[in-house]
Amino acid sequence: MIRLVVVDDQALVREGLGLILGAQPDLEVVAELPDGPALLGFLAGEPGAADVILLDLYLPGADGVEVLGRVRALGPVKVLMLTTVGRAADVQRALAAGADGFVLKDAGGAELAAAVRSVHAGVTALSGSAAELLWPAPVAAAPEHAGARLATLTGREREVLGLLGRGMTNQGIARELALAERTVKSHVSNLLAKLAVTSRTQAALLARHLS
């Protein structure tokens, strides 16, 4: 069970996120908090109580990146940043400060839950909208060339790529396809090289736009 804390200054948003994520069988929302001081107080009073924090980027008093720095000093916990307005600079600033992932509030419930699972597993998670902010070029430029690269994938590599697009980790893909995890890692490396991209997120985003 992944223990999750939701931090957002808008009551309706955090309660909605709590309901959506809490309905997942492997996620438990242990706290819904309005701001940074409340989060820091919770973590100090309940050390080790949270596995993942869903942290709004814009909070009253101190923004989420500043709060993130203070959270890091309190112990190991994964932090997934959240915001409504998407700007590439915001995503870059959060990731540079040590965020484990970044999602926009336009993400669906399934995508958001997948992002929580990914960061918990140690995989940097970006929602599709956030990834597009960072890497528009592979999608926008020469789609016919990208389609030709996609055609070079084997059937198994296409299966792996589809599961990457659902936010699954190598371990999860291995279970889904009944493969050894090292075999999945090999397939991921091969498909990244064939698609001429540098990350699994770029690969999944490219496939999504070509589907």
Score class of each variant (00 low, 15 high):
residue 3 R to Q: 09
residue 5 V to R: 02
residue 12 L to T: 14
residue 12 L to V: 14
residue 12 L to K: 07
residue 13 V to F: 09
residue 14 R to L: 11
residue 17 L to S: 04
residue 19 L to N: 06
residue 22 G to S: 05
residue 22 G to L: 06
residue 23 A to R: 13
residue 25 P to N: 05
residue 30 V to F: 01
residue 30 V to P: 10
residue 37 P to M: 06
residue 40 L to D: 02
residue 43 L to K: 08
residue 43 L to A: 05
residue 44 A to S: 15
residue 44 A to R: 15
residue 50 A to L: 03
residue 52 V to D: 06
residue 62 A to V: 10
residue 62 A to F: 04
residue 63 D to H: 07
residue 75 G to E: 03
residue 77 V to P: 02
residue 77 V to E: 01
residue 79 V to P: 01
residue 79 V to A: 01
residue 82 L to V: 14
residue 83 T to W: 02
residue 83 T to M: 03
residue 86 G to F: 01
residue 93 R to S: 10
residue 94 A to T: 04
residue 94 A to Y: 01
residue 94 A to S: 09
residue 96 A to V: 01
residue 99 A to L: 05
residue 100 D to H: 11
residue 105 K to C: 05
residue 107 A to C: 13
residue 108 G to M: 05
residue 112 L to G: 03
residue 112 L to W: 04
residue 118 S to G: 14
residue 119 V to H: 00
residue 121 A to H: 08
residue 121 A to N: 03
residue 122 G to N: 03
residue 123 V to E: 13
residue 124 T to L: 15
residue 124 T to F: 02
residue 125 A to M: 10
residue 125 A to D: 12
residue 127 S to E: 09
residue 129 S to R: 13
residue 131 A to M: 10
residue 132 E to W: 07
residue 133 L to E: 05
residue 134 L to F: 11
residue 134 L to N: 11
residue 136 P to L: 12
residue 138 P to M: 13
residue 142 A to G: 03
residue 144 E to L: 14
residue 147 G to C: 08
residue 152 T to E: 14
residue 155 G to W: 02
residue 158 R to Q: 15
residue 158 R to N: 09
residue 161 L to C: 13
residue 163 L to N: 09
residue 171 Q to M: 09
residue 175 R to P: 03
residue 176 E to W: 02
residue 177 L to N: 12
residue 179 L to Q: 12
residue 181 E to N: 13
residue 182 R to D: 11
residue 182 R to E: 12
residue 184 V to D: 13
residue 184 V to I: 11
residue 184 V to G: 14
residue 195 L to H: 08
residue 196 A to T: 10
residue 197 V to M: 08
residue 206 L to M: 11
residue 207 A to G: 12
residue 210 L to G: 15
residue 211 S to R: 14
